[in-house]
Write a protein that binds this DNA or RNA. Structure first.
Length: 564
RNA sequence: UGGGCAGUCGCCAAGCGGUAAGGCAGCAGGUUUUGGUCCUGCCAUACGGGGGUUCGAAUCCUCCCUGCCCAGCCA
């Protein structure tokens, strides 16, 4: 697999400025970045920003990007997640070649370095329990107090640390701490814990270890061991940078990568917290991690978003240090832009009403040619059956049309896409007064949708032949949340108060043109004048299931809404 | 009220002392066998606010305001 190339000139951002400077000054000959997920959940669109950034920089500068699992906390991590993460990164279109790493690969080295720290008097074993450590840490405005165990001898620390490793102590009874400064205004520097006892089985190292290193200690060393040049992370780690640098300054590591922080992605109407996403899954608010309403890559993939669209989105949002909330509209734009070019057009009637052409012979069937994609002639053409009895969209008929209406109404000629001009002569209603059938006539000379006299027919509507059409289930999705920006939540409310009850509407009455009969899971189509749909894997012998990826823009609806 | 970071159009975001890119959204037209696409035009005398330096400031200095992050043996 090739990492996607791009001929677009990348937009300038502060990270590129740093890299340009480092390359120009000779600090680095080439760059090496890394995407370092913790395998404790599924990747979401926010991770996609980071993946595109890290792999994209490597691509643009002819460098390398590693995939490294930050797996230092065995009780939260699982192979299910490492598998899904690899699948998602690959699906997004990136290739880590043979550069697949795990922080757990460095456990031995990390341990050796810890002993060095101890031997140099820069780390000590502390007997304080979690509560006590917290009390000693002080507060934002009050300096911390030294641990009573802070000045143990090197020999005692070494002995204790080895016994921690060997399982002599209970979880929580002891920890290894860096000896830095309990009075630092930066809480991260107040003798942070670097090793804790956890008698848990690790998904890769099994039962080999009973102590596990903490993130701050592990991450910088992992970066250094891999020769990472630019270690890009999110804003909340800004305060950790002095600690990142401190460890690397104390240890005989091969190099000292530069940590650079950028603002994580927030999307309007979207919840991006891993913890809450997990709750949505566990509480069955959604149907799993890959529910098409989820902002996970698995969900977006199932919904029908293409990796190209997501990459384009990542490019367009830019990279900066200001907290922001990107409009969901931008993502939709990128999805539509890609689908417009690549999705074949088909006709599907979502809310069918019968249309009978009284002057069209009973039993006659014509196969009419239709282009598959006006944006792409190479997509070819297909044949669609036409007959006396059709279905059209209920919304495409109005008995008393508003001003500006150019769909069907009594006596008004409209074009059936790819077929004929028809004119409604009669409206048939059922006992409830609901329109049950439209009786029309057609112009035999308008075959294909045009006439020699060149008369203008403004309205064009889609249709299917009643007897040839096939049923399907349509899953129509909308935003999962009604609130745009979660920073604006009302006091006392939480995210569950903003769930959209209509985020999924199931349609089982639609009728599709027969060419869709053999559609395969994952395929994407434009249902003309409606939206883009993808074939859901739930499709089977019992019938087709489609997910609505995104609607088409609808300026008519917008204009009508503006009037009321 | 300790420390760190950030504030440029409704939403993103370039800009790095020489007089406000671009995209999305929006608005107005045009083309159109999708009220889709496409095309054209409009959309910040103004860069959180006040002072200051300078011939010249979004860019430098200064004070202030607002927002975000940090007190896990999570990452």
């Amino acid at each position: 697999m090739e990492n996607p190339t791009t001929d677009k000139t990348p937009v300038s951002n502060f990270i590129r400025t740093i890299i340009d400077r480092d390359l120009e000054s000779g600090k680095h000959k080439s760059i090496k970045t890394r995407f370092p997920p913790e395998p404790n959940g599924y990747l979401h669109i926010g991770h996609a920003k980071s993946i595109c950034l890290n792999f994209g920089l490597a691509r643009d500068y002819g460098g390398i990007c590693h995939l490294r699992f930050d797996d230092t906390n065995p009780i939260k991590e699982d192979v299910e997640y490492v598998d899904s993460i690899m699948e998602d990164v690959r699906w997004l279109g990136f290739d880590w070649q043979d550069k697949l790493f795990y922080a757990s690969d460095y456990f031995d080295q990390l341990y050796e370095y810890a002993e060095i720290l101890i031997k140099e008097g820069k780390a000590y074993v502390c007997d304080l329990c979690q509560e006590e450590i917290r009390k000693h840490r002080g507060t934002l405005t009050v300096p911390g107090k030294d641990s009573p165990y802070r000045n143990r001898s090197v020999e005692e620390n070494l002995d204790l640390f080895r016994r921690m490793r060997d399982g002599e102590f209970e979880e929580g009874a002891k920890s290894l701490r860096a000896k830095i400064d309990m009075a630092s205004p930066n809480l991260n520097m107040r003798d942070p814990v670097i090793y804790r006892i956890k008698k848990a089985e690790h998904h890769r190292t099994g039962n080999k270890w009973l102590i596990y290193p903490m993130y701050d200690y592990t991450h910088c060393i992992s970066d250094a061991l891999e020769g990472i040049t630019h270690s890009i992370c999110t804003l909340e780690f800004e305060d950790h940078r002095p600690l990142y640098d401190w460890f690397l300054d104390q240890l005989p590591v091969p190099c000292h990568p530069q940590q650079i922080e950028f603002a994580r992605l927030n999307l309007s109407h979207t919840m991006m917290s891993k913890r809450r996403l997990l709750e949505l899954v566990q509480n069955k608010v959604v149907n799993g991690w890959d529910d098409p309403r989820m902002p996970t890559l698995a969900g977006m993939r199932r919904r029908g978003f293409s990796p190209e669209a997501i990459r384009e989105f990542a490019d367009r949002i830019g990279v900066a240090k200001a907290n922001s909330v990107v409009d969901f509209e931008l993502l939709q734009f990128c999805v539509r832009e890609d689908l417009n070019k690549h999705a074949n057009r088909v006709m599907a009637v979502l809310d069918p009403v019968k249309l009978t052409i009284e002057n069209y012979p009973e039993g006659k069937v014509e196969e009419l040619e239709a282009d598959n994609n006006p944006e792409d002639p190479s997509a070819g053409v297909r044949l669609i059956p036409f007959s006396r009895n059709l279905y059209i969209e209920r919304d495409d008929f109005s008995e008393n049309p508003p001003k500006g209406w150019f769909r069907m109404s009594p006596g008004k000629e409209v074009r059936l896409k790819h077929a004929y001009y028809v004119t409604c002569k009669e409206v048939v209603r059922d006992a409830q007064g609901r329109i049950s059938e439209l009786i029309c006539t057609y112009d035999p000379l308008s075959r294909g949708g045009g006439t020699a006299d060149g008369r203008k027919v403004r309205g064009t509507i889609h249709w299917v032949s009643a007897e040839h059409s096939i049923p399907a289930e349509l899953r129509l999705y909308d935003q999962l949340f009604t609130i745009a920006d979660f920073n604006d939540m009302e006091e006392g409310k939480d995210y569950t108060d903003y769930l959209n009850p209509d985020s999924l509407v199931v349609n089982r009455v639609c009728r599709l043109e027969p060419s869709l009969r053999d559609a395969k899971a994952g395929e994407r189509y434009q249902f003309m004048r409606q939206g883009y749909f993808s074939v859901d894997p739930d499709s089977g012998p019992d019938g087709l299931v489609f997910n609505r990826i995104v609607t088409l823009k609808d300026s008519w609806a917008k204009q009508q809404a503006a009037k009321s």
